[in-house]
């Protein structure tokens, strides 16, 4: 009798764990399929403009996935991620131009710098609650923008132009074709997604989500709230900076407003918010819908100065938050939810 009970007990755990790992494996399979399809895109997309849009979409997908690690899982809403993006961009370019450091190393160094800055800022800002944290991130990023605008050694408002070199994977410079950039940013998106996937199944992921839902209850279960926020912040900043470095190499010209501006902070956060904050697929879904739409509006309605794309983003976000506050990804779970719901 006792042994039978024991057997039935462990069988529940075994069954549950098997199901949970199967679910996680399916996610891996799904992403592998997406990646495969995406990898074939350059065969069909030969038009430069369209390829450009695809590359930007993947870039924001990676960025938003990185933002989601802090904002989605850990619940710390930053609207100042442009500071990390800018450090990645300026760091990589400056290291290359001033010290001849190859961009591969430069982007890692700048990303590490950004992560370090995130820790330093977090040390002060994570004592602030909720909205105050968000406001602080905006203010700090704006301050950084003003600083860079006035620094002569970074080219001030004029910005920096990467010196032209021969096409090469070593310097990550490609003048003739954009296809290598496509594969670089595809790899970056996959890396960001994989990091989020690993976090979801690991100790930190559980702790961060607990901190987001109820920090005091998390603390009562032994979760170190402060370290959780710091860890999430550093990882998030790291990916953001790599994205910034990519952007600088891709456009080969940067200026303070285009990499440190509030617009970038918004574009990093919006796909996650739209697609589903704190979910694995949300940022990807959001980016795939939002970025092409924004680019199209921008090119049909007006130049980048008019802000037509931002109006479109705003309208979309308002619509989604009214109709599906959990984000678009919740549409996928509709069937499961209604089945599980109580009468």
């Amino acid at each position: 009798m006792d042994r039978a009970l024991q057997a039935s007990r462990s069988s529940f755990a075994e069954r549950h764990i098997a199901e949970a790992s199967a679910r996680r494996r399916r996610q891996l399979v799904a992403v592998a399929l997406f990646a495969l399809v995406a990898a074939c895109l350059p065969l069909f997309v030969t038009d430069v403009y369209t390829l450009n849009v695809v590359i930007l979409t993947l870039m924001y997908l990676a960025l938003s996935t990185g933002w989601n690690i802090l904002g989605g899982y850990c619940g710390q809403i930053s609207l100042g991620h442009a500071i990390y993006f800018g450090i990645g961009a300026y760091g990589t370019v400056l290291l290359y131009m001033m010290a001849g450091v190859v961009p591969w190393i430069g982007l890692l160094v700048s990303a590490a710098l950004a992560a370090g800055l995130a820790l330093a800022l977090g040390y002060f800002c994570f004592r602030l609650a909720g909205h105050y944290y968000t406001i602080a991130t905006i203010v700090i990023a704006e301050a950084a923008l003003l600083l860079v605008l006035n620094w002569d050694w970074t080219g001030a408002a004029l910005g920096l132009q990467l010196p032209f070199g021969p096409d090469s994977w070593a310097t990550l410079q490609f003048g003739r074709t954009k296809v290598p950039y496509f594969y670089f940013v595809l790899a970056l998106s996959l890396l960001a997604w994989l990091t989020a996937w690993i976090i979801e199944g690991a100790r930190w992921g559980y702790w961060w989500r607990a901190v987001k839902d109820d920090a005091e209850a998390a603390g009562s279960l032994g979760v170190n709230i402060f370290y959780s926020k710091m860890g999430a912040s550093a990882i998030s900043a790291f990916f953001t900076a790599v994205g910034g470095a990519f952007y600088a190499l891709f456009t080969s010209y940067i200026d303070p407003n285009s990499v440190f501006g509030f617009r970038i902070s918004l574009l990093i956060a919006l796909p996650a918010v739209l697609g589903g904050i704190g979910t694995l697929w949300g940022p990807a879904i959001g980016a795939v819908l939002l970025i092409p739409l924004g680019e199209v509006t921008r090119s049909y309605i007006g130049g980048s100065g008019s802000g037509a794309d931002l109006v479109t983003y705003g309208a979309l976000v308002v619509m989604v938050s009214l109709l599906r506050p959990e984000g678009l990804v919740s549409l996928l779970h509709l069937r499961k939810r209604t089945r599980g719901a109580r009468p």
């Binding site: 559980y206 989500r209 607990a210 987001k212 839902d213 109820d214 005091e216 209850a217 998390a218 704190g278």
Partner: peptide, 8 residues
């Protein structure tokens, strides 16, 4: 006052 992690 019950505190659960409602999104989990």
């Amino acid at each position: 006052v019950v505190r659960s992690f409602d999104s989990m």
